[in-house]
Design a binder for these strands. Sequence first.
DNA 1: TGCTTATTGTTCATGTTTGAACATAATGGT
DNA 2: ACCATTATGTTCAAACATGAACAATAAGCA
Lengths: 176, 176
Amino acid sequence: MNNKQASVAGSAVAEAPRQDMPWDHPRFRNWIAVGRLHAHWERAFARELKPLGIKCAHHDVLANVRRDPGLTQQVLARRMLVGRSNVTMLLPQLERMSLIRREDDPADRRAKRLFLTPAGESVTAASLAVQLRLMGRMMEALSLAECDQMGEMARRLTETLAEGKPTPRPAPQAAP
Amino acid sequence: MNNKQASVAGSAVAEAPRQDMPWDHPRFRNWIAVGRLHAHWERAFARELKPLGIKCAHHDVLANVRRDPGLTQQVLARRMLVGRSNVTMLLPQLERMSLIRREDDPADRRAKRLFLTPAGESVTAASLAVQLRLMGRMMEALSLAECDQMGEMARRLTETLAEGKPTPRPAPQAAP
DNA sequence: TGCTTATTGTTCATGTTTGAACATAATGGT
DNA sequence: ACCATTATGTTCAAACATGAACAATAAGCA
């Protein structure tokens, strides 16, 4: 853990060149870039989703329910990396829009299982299309190999970050 | 815009195999991985920052002010990719902790310029150390070359995403 | 100068996310 | 069967972020 890295000009520096700053570290700059990318994406996606009358979080619910019809709220919350209460507050909105239907699980009287209504199916199809379109546009910047590589790195980083930690709030079986 | 892509087994498929799903697209899975990574990072960083009594947003302010002492709130907001009002609500908190000092700009009586107090300097040093330590741990998963590559891709993606768009809310001169 | 427009920071109402506390129900051990 | 433990979903207050409307100031231009 020796992050001394002699900032460029090594000779006769006047009055301490603001010492070894984080911005000199390549890793710092690179990680910041990832953060900015994420923020821009969220904004862009939210904007494109507006015409459909839903927000990113709604899309996230819909996409997950479409993928795994009959999900419980608990599982959904873990997938989305948010708290259970958040899901509880999100669902009534989607129910009022008649996009989601909640069904009591007969096998477990605590749990409620989630399904898309026909309207939900069609809105989900639309929002997925929006997502794919925007993503496709963005990804023009990358070759397919690069894209895979980026995903690979992201998965490795996530794992490294999680290991040795008391599981911030991930699912038992994550990574879909 | 033809995203038909014949899902694998082309012959005698029983009752539509849930058609061409986004999860089949490698780009989809890869991008999701990036999103998850970001969420995990935020959580981990917030947890490590707690002992210092500040949150991610606070650190963001501090780090930016340290980098560019005398920033105005407007510029800071653009750097942080948040609204001006958010900055306005964030600063009183940091002032109450005596970490930040606001100074009226004599040249422009609307603007206020931001500086770190001595206490602010030391907390910022600490929070930057925390960030570098956590980042270092995470980045063990990547070679330096890979890390640079990831940053490179992120910058390219951000640019591609922004171009053709009415500038969601980026700074005139972004990319620090 | 006098006018219009743009910029800076604030306020406020609104919507979102969170975590703690809770009620109900399942599970496991004895 | 009984009890403690765990899991699921809900409620609620508090923290947060957002965007629109605003006051004050600056800048551009006739």
